[in-house]
Simulated assay, not measured.
Amino acid sequence: MQLSDKHEGTTTKAFAGLRVLDFSTTIAGPHCARMLADMGAEVIKIETDGGETMRTRPPLRKGCSTVFGQLNVGKKSVVLDLKSEDGKEAVRRLVATADILVENFRPGVMRRLRLDYDSLRPINPRLIYCSISGYGQTGPSAELPAYAPVIHAASGYDMAHLAYQPGRDRPDYCGIYHADVVTGTYGFGAIASALYQRTATGFGQHIDVSMLESMLTLTLTELQSSQFAVKAPPRPMFGPTETANGYVMITVASEKTFQGLMSVIGRPEWISDPRFSIYAVRRDNWGDVMDGVEAWSRQLTTDACLVALGAAGVPASAYRTVSEALADPQLAHRRALSEVKDEGGSFQVLNLPFRMSGADTTPRERMAVLGEHTRELCDEVGLADNAPIPSGKTVAQG
C-alpha cells in the first residue's frame, strides 16, 4: 500500500497524544525518539545551550546538519541546564505531564542529577523511563564509556565479520554504526510494549537497554556455533560472485534456490551429485559449487547474470552504492523518503521502514531551531521566569 492509498482512519498517528522527554544524544537514543515522533508522539528534545553533539556533524548547510535532522526531525527543542536547580525543577514539572522519557547517559549520571527513574517515579507513576547504555545499567562493565564502534568490537561482531573474509586478519574500520540503530530500535519496541502493559496495570516502568546485548542479536549463527564445534565451509557461503564487469551477490538458502541456480549455470546434474545433493555435504564442498557458478558468471555482465538468476527465482543483487539504492524505483513506489526542512534548506530523510494500514508513519516536516520551544514549555509548567534562554536561539556552527 502506498501512503496515498488511505482509507477511513489511516490518517491517525498511533502514538498521538503521548509526550516524550528525549534527553538522549548522538544516535541510539535520538533514533529511538525519532521513531516515537514519527508515530505521532510529541517529543521534547532537552539540550544544553551549546546544542547536541550531532548538530555539528557533516553534511552541514548554513551550519545545519542533515545527519542531526535525520535523527531529530519532528521533535521540539528545549534548552535546560540540568545542573541548575531551575533546570531540574523544569524537568520534574515536565515529567509530571509526560508518558515516556528516553536517556542514554552513562549509568549513574541521571542518578547524580536526581533525575533517575526512582527519583521521578513518585512524580509520575505512569512514566515509562527508557535508559540506553553500552553495557546495561548494572554490572561490572556498566559505567564504562561506550560508543557503537567500541560495542562492535566488544560484542565479537567485528571478529565474526572478519572470519568471513578469507586471507585477512585485521578487523575492518568502523563507519556504519549498526549498534546504535539496532539498540534504538529495541528501545522503541520495549517502549511500545510498556505502553501496552500500562493499559492493564496503570503503571509505567524502567526499561534498561544494553547496546552490547542488542549487538549480540546480530550474531545469531555465531552465538550458537561459539558454544559447539562447527566446521566452517571452505568458502563463505554468501559473498561476491565475479561477473565479466563486476560482482553480484547470490544467496542460496533453500533447496529450491539451489536447484534453480544449478539450472541457470547449466549444471542440473549437480542437483543429485553426492557432493552437493544435501545441505550438510554441500556446505563442505561449497568452494566447488561456487567455482562452477563463477565459471558461468564470468562470461556474462552483471546485468545479464541478474536477468538469468531472476528468471530462475534465485535471490541476487548487484553491489550498489547508497546513492544507487536510493534511486531504486521500489523506494519511490513505497515513498520511502520524505522531504523535510531546517534553517539550511530542505533535504530528504528515510521514513520508518514499515507501513500501517490504519496509521500514518511519516515524519513531521521541519527541524526545530535550538531552544525554539523553551519559552512555550516553561510557560506551560509555570516556570516562565526561569526559562534559561529566549525561544528560537540559534547557535553558530562550522
Rank of each mutant, 00 (worst) to 15 (best):
A308V: 07
D22Q: 03
M35V: 12
Y173L: 15
I27E: 04
P140L: 10
G50S: 15
A387P: 06
A384E: 11
A41T: 01
T66P: 01
C174S: 14
D172K: 15
G189Y: 01
C378S: 07
I278Q: 15
A192I: 09
E343K: 13
V78K: 08
E42R: 09
P145R: 01
G87E: 01
M367H: 10
G50L: 14
M237E: 12
G69Y: 05
Q299D: 08
T201P: 06
Y196V: 12
T201V: 06
G187W: 09
Q348I: 02
L94Q: 07
P236S: 05
T241N: 12
I207Q: 00
S357T: 13
V73F: 04
V381K: 03
A232I: 07
E339W: 12
G246M: 02
K393Y: 14
G40E: 02
F105Q: 09
K88V: 04
Q205C: 11
S338F: 05
R334L: 07
E339L: 09
H333R: 13
G69C: 08
V349T: 02
S4H: 10
G51L: 05
S4K: 09
M1I: 10
D208Q: 01
D38F: 02
S131C: 03
N245S: 11
S226T: 10
T301G: 06
V73Q: 02
E255A: 10
G382V: 02
D172S: 15
S4G: 09
P140F: 08
M215E: 14
S297I: 01
G184N: 03
P390K: 13
R267S: 11
L300G: 00
D116V: 06
S323M: 15
P329G: 00
L300C: 05
A16L: 02
F354Q: 12
G204A: 11
A318R: 10
V264G: 06
M54V: 12
W286L: 13
T221H: 14
I250N: 07
E242G: 11
I389W: 11
L127C: 07
E52D: 13
C130T: 09
C174N: 11
H333L: 10
E89I: 03
A332D: 14
F15P: 04
T26Q: 14
R19G: 03
W286D: 11
R334S: 07
V95M: 08
G156C: 01
G398T: 15
F347E: 00
P122L: 02
E89G: 07
L80I: 09
D169K: 15
E269Y: 06
T374Y: 00
Y147W: 01
A98T: 03
Q165N: 10
Q224W: 15
R114I: 09
A148T: 03
A253K: 04
G134R: 03
G382S: 04
T12F: 12
E324Q: 13
A28D: 04
A142T: 03
A28E: 04
A148L: 04
I389S: 10
N72T: 02
P58K: 09
R93G: 09
V340Q: 06
Y117Q: 01
V281W: 12
H333I: 08
E380P: 07
G287Y: 10
I265L: 00
S277I: 13
I271S: 05
T251N: 14
C130P: 08
D169P: 13
R320T: 10
A295K: 11
S214D: 00
Q224D: 15
